[in-house]
Design a protein around this nucleic acid. Sequence first.
DNA 1: TGTAAAAGTCATCAACCGTTGACTTGGGCG
DNA 2: CGCCCAAGTCAACGGTTGATGACTTTTACA
Lengths: 190, 190
Amino acid sequence: MAENVAPVRARNAAATRQAILDAAKSRFAKEGYDGASLREIAADARVDAALVSRYFGSKEELFVEVLNCGPDATELFQGELSQFGERVADKLMDDPDRQDGLDHLLIMLRSASSPAAAEPLRRSMRTWFHDPFAAYLGGPEADVRARLAGDLIMGVAISRAITDDHDLDVEGQAALRRRLAKVIQAAIEP
Amino acid sequence: MAENVAPVRARNAAATRQAILDAAKSRFAKEGYDGASLREIAADARVDAALVSRYFGSKEELFVEVLNCGPDATELFQGELSQFGERVADKLMDDPDRQDGLDHLLIMLRSASSPAAAEPLRRSMRTWFHDPFAAYLGGPEADVRARLAGDLIMGVAISRAITDDHDLDVEGQAALRRRLAKVIQAAIEP
DNA sequence: TGTAAAAGTCATCAACCGTTGACTTGGGCG
DNA sequence: CGCCCAAGTCAACGGTTGATGACTTTTACA
């Protein structure tokens, strides 16, 4: 018993930093800014808690870094505009674990109540979601249409995250998917 | 200097209890279940913090009590069905302080990330919002239509609560209100 | 190989949280 | 008036959080 435990990862600042960022992103998405503790994040990343503060300075700076590091939603803003509703509806009604593109949305809703997180959230939302969305839509009142459709998407994502869809049967979900696609399309139409 | 401070309120269990409930409702709506502390709530109600635990047993029980005490949203579910979109859009775009009917929605979104609050939230949402809404709508797939429209309303309420509307000018807000009314109506149409 | 800096760990701090038990104060009833 | 129970207060608890400084281990270079 010379070496007591596995080293988990070779000493590599960049890799460790990334591991912390990944763990933080996941935790923030699941529990929000306040709910996620640095100790949990550090445990997920197999790292001492003190190292997180050391690498990122403070929890808020880590949060900003997480928000700025991954766009993730831009993949939605490619392809036929007329099929946008269908695409997003499919994505939203997928099983929650596959919603990579919606991590930031989840972070947003779960951290909405934290004053410390509010300002970074606003900025990130605008940069990574709203502005690209409005540019993708184009046409008159693009910002209003993007805002409305974005709010709808966020509302549905929240609802799914909260209710776990225990209250809708299979055909109910199918009906919701159809209707959702239609309404999203109506929201972005000029 | 015999009496050192104002008694604030005559000794009255019912009134004190109600004052705590009001303060809790407001705090939960502003900061969510985790963010609102019993000490803050007690201070708002001009009451010692210990009294809150004494009256309601625990923070979670107080939360449940707040959720169960006021429906508040039923007023939306009265009047012409064809005007529903207009009515809700007006309500949503009002200044945030006047959104009495949406307090529970705010509480819901701000507390979405707290495991302790999740189950009471689901129950309350269903009882006080979704079910009456579906009953009000009627017709085929009433639950799906209620769910979708509810998600849209929640998303818009969240968005407004977060962004403070610093990013939309006056005519932008007017355009958003028009479009919102239209999309809500589309969401509830059979 | 020797060494200095980077990478990671440990112990600890002050602040805040929800909750509890012992205490003091007040008002209504005999 | 005097009592007594309800209403309200105070101080303290164990636990958790974010953050910091001193410490040890590893890596890489001369």
